[in-house]
């Protein structure tokens, strides 16, 4: 093992040991599991999702501020380049204050995957998988799977086009079937395996590739708006790297149901 890698591992180990379960400000609700066909999929690709708990809201700036106060190695001035690029917490006034460009009740953005993952771990939680996130997010106000509804898809597509929603407050969008807010309409959210479905930079090429997206591309039909909404999420995830910190990207945490006390 090369020395730098060793240091990295030690660092990760260290920060893990430093974790103590924080007070849970962000309450969770149960998402009842089930079998669903991902947006890019056909019948044969049905995925089973177990019951899990999900944060009602995305993590806010003020919550993340208290996290970096407890774990100073995740402050902007201390963060290792390996774990976050130069945009990490860029719009905070400084390490200890949010300032005008980062409202306390707005979702925290400009956080890397490493930081988001660590935050959740320190709360005894974890990041949701792509499947868990997509499963919870296919609900609208009334139904657990609203993907066939025109209004639902139009809402998502319109948000994808609306600029600067990152400054809105958490809880400002609709409460979905499970009781969860802001899955659509506020910011993108990190997932644990965000890069597991690979989109190459050249999305047109993906149609003849033996990848998950092959099916998605083939399934795009005149009335199939939902694939477009999904494509944009997958394209976005595909453009990410784990150290990227992006203005429109925040996160929330989940927890397995069966390891609850």
């Amino acid at each position: 093992m090369t020395p730098p890698l060793k240091i990295v591992l030690l660092l990760i180990l260290n920060t893990c040991l430093l974790c103590s379960v924080q007070a849970q400000k962000n309450t969770m609700v149960t998402v009842k599991g089930g079998v669903y066909i991902p947006l890019y999929g056909v019948d044969s690709t049905a995925v089973k999702v177990n019951d899990f708990l999900m944060d009602i809201y995305p993590v806010s700036n003020v919550e993340f501020l208290s996290f970096v106060e407890k774990f100073p190695e995740w402050k902007r001035s201390n963060i290792k380049q390996l774990f976050a690029d130069k945009n990490y917490l860029l719009f905070w006034k400084n390490d200890a204050a949010l300032g005008e460009q980062a409202l306390p009740n707005s979702p925290v953005t400009n956080v890397s995957w490493f930081a988001a993952k660590k935050y959740c771990e320190c709360q005894g939680k974890r990041l949701p998988t792509v499947d868990e996130w997509e499963y919870a997010a296919m609900a609208d106000q009334q139904t657990p799977d609203a993907r066939k509804k025109k209004t639902y898809n139009q809402y998502i597509l319109e948000w994808y086009e609306a600029p600067k929603s990152f400054n809105n407050k958490i809880g400002s969008t609709f409460k979905n079937y499970w009781g969860i807010y802001d899955l659509h309409g506020l910011v993108w959210e990190w997932t644990l395996d965000f890069n597991s479905v690979l989109i190459s930079g050249e999305s047109r090429k993906d149609v003849d590739k033996d990848s998950n997206l092959f099916c998605g591309s083939a399934a795009v039909g005149a009335s199939d708006l939902m694939n477009y909404a999904a494509f944009m999420r997958y394209a976005f995830r595909g453009s990410m790297k784990a150290n990227y910190s992006v203005r429109n990207l925040g996160f929330r945490c989940v927890k397995d149901k069966d390891i609850l006390p």
Binding site: G201, E202, Y244, R247
Partner: peptide, 14 residues
Amino acid sequence: PGGGATSSFVAPGH
């Protein structure tokens, strides 16, 4: 390939 598309895929803020 891709007329540059394969090499220019870029995330917001990058």
